[in-house]
Amino acid sequence: MAAATDDAGDSNEMIRVVSSDGEHFEMPEAAANLSLVLRHMIEDDCADAAGIPLAVVAAKPLAKIVDYCTKHAAKSSGLTIEEAEELKRFDAEFIEVDTDMLYDLLVAADFMGVEGLSKLAVQRTADLIKGKTPEQNRETFGIVNDFTPEEEEEICKENEWAFQITKPPSRLC
């Protein structure tokens, strides 16, 4: 049985995972343990040489997630201020991705139960949304406006108090 331990230092065992498109990845057990799903699989003795299959996670996001978990597992406890700062920088750079990858990470982190990564991706998406007009957000996320002009106008009217009236409605909403 693979030793289920929370201490990164005690286990050198590598865990194999397989992406939905058949690519194999390896990461230390401590890194795999950052994923709730992988941890349960390891605890249930499902981690073998063939690798744990992740049916909904493609190779591209999985490679990123393995990176994330490996980095964070190596620096999991007793961080110095400098190490914490470095991890923060790593996260900031890590999440500088296009919206397609961001979407993949959101879904994959949620599916795999990697809490830290979920939070990171969620915050990044929220940061992308804030300060943008509805039109800019549609552009960023590739969303089609399914409101009729009448519906849009009605919502703007209802919420007039929140919008500066110096601009025409179409631009301020």
Binding site: A126, T133, P134, N145, E152, C156
Partner: peptide, 19 residues
């Protein structure tokens, strides 16, 4: 994601106009 938007009400309002 929406929970993590800033508290200013105009931010939620504008997001609610996306789709």
């Amino acid at each position: 994601i929406f929970l993590h938007l800033p508290t200013h009400p105009t931010c939620l309002l504008r997001a609610s106009l996306v789709c």
